[in-house]
Design a binder for these strands. Structure first.
Length: 779
RNA sequence: GGGGGAGUGGUCUAGUGGCUAUGACGGCGCCCUUACACGGCGCAGAUCGCGGGUUCGACUCCCGUCUCCCCCA
């Protein structure tokens, strides 16, 4: 029989990623992306994170993240779920404001609010379109025709409606409290938005005088500029050095304030001199002590990060300059005993990376402490992928001790829906039925319900963007907009997200949805690690090591990119981004492509009388399917991707195909034996294509249609591990024997088709016919 | 200071009590064998962070220790 009679159905010698776009369009036509509630099957709904377009390029790690979220959706479909995979774009908040200021060279404080928010919107539209393009290129099987924006009237109206509901229930209140304040951003921020960095800081040992005894009391501080607001000095009650000084007084240098020396357990004996000055406010301990000791608060730093009038001659200086100046002044007066440089855990604004200050501000707060026990409970009952990441949430939940400040002094966000009556000052909240902009609109009433006054001032503040993001499960399930839909979708099945926003997005969503609906918003939390550069360092624009995903996707194709994303690191671990390794993934796509091309040249028989080699391959295949499905059930794509690559390359192609090739071509075998080889090759290929399709949907779908025809492979179900695994006991022996033959020929400098005289081991006698043909064994 | 995680060939990684530790990338050598040179075969390369203990047996369990990462104070 001539080999030309077996023409492959696939002509090209390698997968061409330019076909991917065409397939994407096919999927849209076939309705893969759409949720049809009339369809049978349990619903699997994904609370997809709406990505934030804060600037270009988009992070390659984020692209890897979204490609894996898509694998979750495709896995759910292939497990038979009716899958709801919405997609939105998060467009509220600070990063776009900063991006806009830079891009258009304007300042938020000196640009009219309307004009500034328009510029933000324009910037977002641009960034968003690139982001959508990338997501489509990656093969994200979301319904893009219905994508949502968190800055749409509909979304913001829902955020405001939930605010109004919580206000009316007394969960939201206004108060003046010391808060984390970022002077660069000009706004209060929540604890969750504070990060800590260990920075070298000068610890200054300052000589105080004890009023009653005249002796010197040394106080070590990293914040000498706050001397002006010092209201007490504390020492540890057990500290022998200071027992005689309890409740005496000391004079603060330069400012000559008179403060008490108070024994308190917060003082650490081993830190500095063991005596600590308490100022408003150096850190969170100061806040607690001011409350505990009922001290008089002095505001030493203003909203612009400058010293206030209480700082005397230092007024107007920026904090850092004031610190340097006061150290100089203290030194000149001989009051500095020593200055040591220490590493200090410094609170920074997560967004702008500036040091935050604690400043008393009037803000709206959401009462969260009562609900924390409920969140602790759901943190324990929710299913985490990976399980180990449950701890990140628990750590955070267990550390919450104050309410959540939710108002921000910014422009591009959802407006606080409150007007104040100019006459009586009482707040007015409108009915929760539309999107309100109090800073530019009149309230929907003529007269104040309290006093009848007819003029109002709208609140100018916006809400913390997490107030918007934390209701994403409610938005996508059409909460308060479509009851029937809401009942089918909520609570959602799974929340996928990155590790670094557990304490914000994950926590706040649990909190808000629990408060609003009395239920946890999802059953599974899927937590991914983040992408770092080739050397394992965090990618950042300032380091210049950010990799743009767009050219990588165009060059290597989505399937290679996705396979890389799946196989690079186990779920939840951080992963390194290296183009070299993405290219290695592409070579696997090519390998599978060519294997498919080979198999595509043979007909596909309906049944066959299997040879031992065939049974062996199917036994190994069964094991592969079983283990891969276990990985898919945990949505850990690292497991199936690596197992499948291993199987395809090192078992199927290297051993089985070579063993069965002679039979498949038919030379020296019966028709029935040949059919068995064909049958097994196709069974193996189909199984692999199905098993791999959530990870590499494009090339598997193309091959599937080319060889087996019909609709997209994405509408099919996963294969079952249906074959007897008895023959697996032979695996090791087969691999070893083949290797021996290859080595023998090699050591003689022979070509692989040379005849060889070698004894086939007893255990492999069943496989003798295939092995003889494979190695050209003469006996 | 407390908590969590991790340390396996040059790099990344599998393996959680059992024979000579998995695979990938890179390196080197040989080979165009009718799916694939984007390939095949092979070679080199790890005393599994360090020290102790439990055990017939430890990369795997326990204790200590060092280093790195994350979270909290």
């Amino acid at each position: 029989m001539e080999s030309s009679s077996y023409a492959p159905k696939i002509a090209e010698r390698a997968w061409d990623p330019s076909i991917e776009q065409h397939l994407s369009d096919e999927w849209t036509k076939e309705g893969l992306y759409r949720l049809d509630l009339n369809k049978k099957g349990r619903i699997f709904s994904i609370d997809t994170p709406p990505p934030y377009p804060s600037g270009r390029p988009w992070h390659i790690g984020a692209a890897a993240h979204y490609s894996q979220i898509d694998m979750i959706a495709r896995t759910a479909r292939m497990r038979g779920y009716n899958t709801y995979f919405p997609i939105g774009i998060d467009r509220n908040g600070l990063p776009v404001e900063i991006y806009t200021e830079k891009k258009y060279g304007v300042s938020i404080r000196s640009t009219p609010r309307d004009r500034f928010t328009d510029l933000c919107r324009t910037a977002l539209d641009e960034l968003e379109s690139e982001m959508l393009q990338i997501m489509k290129l990656m093969g994200l099987s979301s319904d893009f025709e219905r994508y949502y924006r968190t800055d749409s009237d509909e979304y913001r109206a829902l955020t405001q409606a939930t605010f109004i509901k919580m206000w009316n229930e007394g969960i939201i209140y206004e108060a003046k409290r010391p808060n984390n304040y970022c002077s660069a951003c000009g706004t209060t921020i929540a604890d969750a938005e504070v990060i800590y960095e260990d920075l070298p800081t000068q610890l200054v040992h300052v000589a105080f005088k004890v009023e009653e005894t005249g002796q010197t009391l040394t106080i070590a501080t990293t914040r000498p500029e706050l001397l002006c607001s010092c209201q007490a000095v504390i020492v540890h009650p057990d500290d022998e050095r200071y027992k005689a000084l309890h409740h005496l007084h000391t004079t603060t240098p330069i400012f000559n304030g008179r403060v008490e020396i108070i024994p308190n357990l917060s003082a650490k004996m081993e830190y500095g001199s063991g005596a600590v000055m308490i100022c408003s406010y150096g850190d969170y301990t100061d806040v607690l002590l001011f409350r505990e000791l009922k001290l008089k608060e002095t505001v030493a730093i203003d909203e612009n990060g400058r010293m206030t009038s209480v700082a005397g001659s230092y007024a107007g200086l920026k904090v850092k300059a004031a610190r340097e100046t006061i150290i100089k002044d203290l030194t000149e007066r001989g009051l500095v005993e020593k200055v040591e440089t220490i590493s200090h855990r410094t609170p920074m604004c997560e967004r702008s990376r500036t040091q935050i200050e604690i400043i008393p501000m009037t803000e709206y707060y959401l009462k969260q402490l009562n609900t924390v026990p409920k969140i602790q409970r759901s943190a324990k009952t929710m299913i985490f992928h990976p399980e180990s990441h449950r701890q990140i949430l628990l750590n955070w939940v267990n550390s919450i001790s104050i309410d959540w400040p939710i108002s921000r002094r910014r422009f591009y966000g959802t407006e606080v829906p409150i007007w104040l009556c100019d006459k009586c000052g009482s707040p007015y909240l409108p009915p929760p039925d539309r999107y309100y902009k109090p800073w530019k609109e009149n309230p929907p009433i003529q007269a104040c319900p309290k006093c009848g006054g007819n003029s109002f001032t709208g609140d100018k503040r916006t809400l913390d963007t997490w107030m918007d993001s934390s209701i994403s499960p409610l938005f996508i399930s059409k909460y308060q907009r479509d009851d029937a839909f809401f009942k089918r979708i909520y609570p959602t099945t799974l929340r996928p997200q990155a590790k670094d926003i557990v304490r914000t997005w994950l926590y706040y969503t649990l909190l808000r949805c629990q408060m609003l609906t009395g239920k946890a918003p999802f059953r599974h939390a899927w937590i991914m690690g983040h992408g770092v550069d080739e050397k394992g360092e965090r990618m950042s624009k300032s380091k210049g090591n950010v990799i743009d995903p767009l050219p990588v996707l165009k060059k290597h194709g989505a399937d290679a990119f996705r396979f890389w994303a799946a196989s690079e690191a186990s779920l939840g671990s951080d992963f390194r981004c290296s183009e070299e390794r993405i290219d290695a993934a592409r070579r696997f796509i090519t390998k599978l492509w060519n294997l498919s091309r080979f198999i595509s040249s043979f007909p596909q028989p309906k049944k066959a009388v299997l040879a031992p080699s065939d049974k062996w391959l199917l036994a190994e295949l069964s094991k592969l399917v079983k283990k891969s499905l276990e990985g898919y059930r945990d949505f850990n794509f690292f497991i199936p991707s690596n197992l499948i690559r291993e199987f395809v390359w090192n078992t199927f192609a290297a051993h089985y195909v070579e063993m069965a090739k002679g039979r498949a071509y038919g030379t020296g075998f019966t028709k029935s034996q040949q059919q068995a080889a064909w049958y097994t090759l196709h069974t193996g290929l189909k199984t692999i294509l199905l098993l791999l399709s959530p990870i590499t949907p494009f090339s598997t779908d193309f091959v599937w249609r080319q060889i087996y025809g019909g609709r997209s492979i994405s509408f099919a179900r996963f294969p079952r591990p249906a074959w007897n695994t008895r023959f697996s006991v032979k695996t090791e022996k087969i691999l070893e024997f083949n290797s021996t033959v290859w080595n023998t020929k090699k050591s003689k400098g022979q070509s692989l088709k040379e005849p060889i005289h070698i004894e086939i081991p007893e255990e492999l006698k069943d496989f003798a016919q295939d092995l003889k043909a494979m190695h050209n064994i003469q006996q």
